[in-house]
Amino acid sequence: MIRRTLSTLFPPHVRESGEPPLGPRADRYEAWSGVLNFSRRPRQGALGDCWLMAPMLAIHSVDPEFFANAIKVQPGSSKALARVFVEGAPAWRSVNMRFPVNERGRFAYATEEGGGPGWPGILEKACAAEFSGSYAWIARGFAKWGFPALTGVSASTRLVLPSPGELEDLLAQKRPVVASTHMFSTALSRGRQSGAIPPMHVMAVAGAKPDTGEIVLRNPWRPGAWVTLNRREFRRAFLSVDVLDQPLGRSREGS
């Protein structure tokens, strides 16, 4: 479903498993040889692919070890195998360990929080090659596409925003949730001590507090920071949420 949907939006392309064409704010590829640390949260870089990175962060918040089963790296190898899902079926893709950097030589796109590209960079590169053929063309999409690409499980969009109690129940069931802001969210969130909520952005729902009516989110640009909203702020700043249709599991470990 995801490839079919994307193909209606993106122009024809030649899929490259090695190095997809660069996107914005990237100057060249450079090799990375660090050690993967799956305990580190994924961090979105200069690429506008929050539709992919927010679901990645939401999944990691629910089960930090989930992605340890999605990447295989041989010690000393210059390549990794990354698992993505195409039409619900696992597809392992070879990814070389070279990643986009900006003109200053800093890694431009997805990274492990506080580290190099790591496992998020590998997965982002595999998705760029598999679903759009380039980094530039993966910088657009809807959050409900990110979940099936990463888990093989579909997601549903809810325009009626869940209550804090409902969100707490969903997360307890290991059903990751992301929330999408709208174009006016910055104006509506002015004056908040923790800053404005970015417009037209996707954030991971990390928790909920039914007793206080608060929702806790993480921004994929700054995944280490909490953003806490009351129910009124949440309804004013966010347009919809996307929820994984089934509990997140590790039944696909051997896939």
Score class of each variant (00 low, 15 high):
149 A>T: 08
161 L>D: 02
172 A>V: 07
149 A>E: 10
141 G>P: 09
140 R>F: 04
130 E>G: 07
147 F>H: 03
167 L>P: 00
130 E>Q: 13
178 V>A: 08
179 A>S: 12
179 A>P: 06
165 G>H: 09
155 A>I: 05
171 L>I: 02
155 A>V: 01
134 S>L: 05
135 Y>D: 02
164 P>V: 10
161 L>P: 02
157 T>Q: 13
147 F>A: 05
154 S>D: 15
135 Y>C: 00
138 I>Y: 07
178 V>F: 06
167 L>G: 00
146 G>P: 06
176 P>F: 03
160 V>Y: 11
177 V>L: 05
178 V>R: 04
137 W>F: 15
147 F>E: 02
177 V>R: 01
168 E>N: 09
170 L>H: 00
132 S>T: 15
129 A>V: 00
165 G>R: 14
144 K>D: 13
169 D>L: 08
156 S>I: 10
168 E>R: 15
181 T>L: 11
129 A>F: 04
139 A>Q: 11
146 G>N: 03
140 R>Y: 04
133 G>E: 09
130 E>M: 09
155 A>Y: 02
134 S>K: 02
150 L>F: 04
173 Q>W: 02
158 R>M: 12
160 V>P: 08
180 S>E: 14
136 A>R: 09
175 R>A: 04
168 E>P: 05
156 S>C: 12
145 W>K: 00
176 P>R: 05
182 H>R: 12
152 G>Q: 05
182 H>W: 11
131 F>P: 03
157 T>P: 10
175 R>F: 01
179 A>I: 10
177 V>C: 05
140 R>I: 01
165 G>C: 08
157 T>D: 14
164 P>F: 12
153 V>Y: 11
134 S>Q: 07
169 D>R: 11
178 V>Y: 07
151 T>Q: 07
133 G>W: 09
164 P>G: 11
177 V>G: 06
166 E>W: 03
176 P>V: 03
140 R>Q: 10
139 A>V: 03
174 K>N: 15
180 S>Y: 13
181 T>S: 15
174 K>S: 14
179 A>H: 09
175 R>E: 03
133 G>F: 15
149 A>H: 03
169 D>W: 05
143 A>Q: 09
135 Y>T: 00
133 G>I: 08
137 W>Q: 14
171 L>D: 01
177 V>Q: 01
137 W>H: 15
159 L>N: 13
149 A>M: 15
159 L>W: 15
152 G>A: 06
156 S>R: 13
170 L>E: 02
131 F>G: 03
181 T>P: 14
130 E>D: 12
170 L>R: 03
169 D>N: 13
133 G>C: 14
129 A>T: 00
143 A>K: 05
164 P>R: 13
170 L>C: 00
176 P>S: 12
144 K>E: 15
151 T>M: 11
167 L>S: 00
151 T>E: 08
172 A>Y: 10
153 V>K: 12
170 L>T: 02
136 A>W: 03
